[in-house]
Design a protein around this nucleic acid. Structure first.
Lengths: 120, 120
DNA sequence: TGGTAATTTGGCAAATTCGCCAAATATCGT
DNA sequence: ACGATATTTGGCGAATTTGCCAAATTACCA
């Protein structure tokens, strides 16, 4: 089989995934899920150069995840699709499972039985 | 605020996202959502070098998205978390919205109202 | 045991991404 | 209009990713 359509779809999907495949970018998406924020706000939260943050935001906007609007002096960014966070919580499930396997252990509240405690 | 926890979480999330942030890799995840497949099967479907596919699969496994098992001569890969596909379908929503804005237009069956008729 | 098929690993060049600085742009307040 | 604040863009070196080839590894079968 050729999988032409599937590959095109995969290309589009991967673009959106890749947009979120960066710590700073998904961190900002997380913040924006709670409230709209200006570039300045996000810059302070992220703790990187403004230009870096601006470029990350631009990338997320191009991926179709964010919209921006001008408010006086500032630019306010908003998350477009509320379902994104549901989606991200699904990812968290994967992380939990990883954690159980000892791959990573960073989810707040994750109950990791490290140490010699026998897994069944 | 410091956002320490949030940043750690973001790092984990971005790892999983990044794993799917590649056309070939998310294409394989899509295929594996329908049925388990061997490296050989996937290599044929993808159309790249076996070693390339193997490395992609290894990366997805390390991200906690796939598991592999040996069956005789071959290695069979399976998608761990069924919810991944729901997650991906949420991404598709973003793509649809992008398409409406003319950003991209690749979803099969997407109804894009550009002025001129496009593909059949 | 030798040969074959299936998969993984090492290595390397090309391509892409990342983050900072400096400069440009836009808007506000006076 | 001028200076200050907020954001974007250009550019560059550093780091990472990607994909192919060749070689190593593993399991099957005669």
């Amino acid at each position: 089989m050729n999988y032409e359509k599937e590959k095109l779809l995969a290309a589009s999907r991967s673009r959106v995934m890749k947009a979120m495949g960066h710590p700073t970018r998904i961190f900002m998406v997380d913040l924006l899920a709670k409230q709209d924020l200006t570039v300045g706000d996000l810059t302070e939260a992220v703790g990187a150069d403004v230009s870096t943050v601006s470029k990350h935001l631009s990338l997320l906007r191009q991926a179709g995840l964010l919209v921006d609007r001008k408010e006086g002096n500032k630019v306010v960014y908003s998350l477009i699709c509320p379902c994104i966070m549901e989606f991200i919580h699904c990812i968290d499930d994967v992380i939990y499972q990883d954690a159980e396997k000892g791959i990573s252990c960073v989810l707040p509240g994750a109950k990791i039985t490290t140490g010699s405690g026998g897994s069944t």
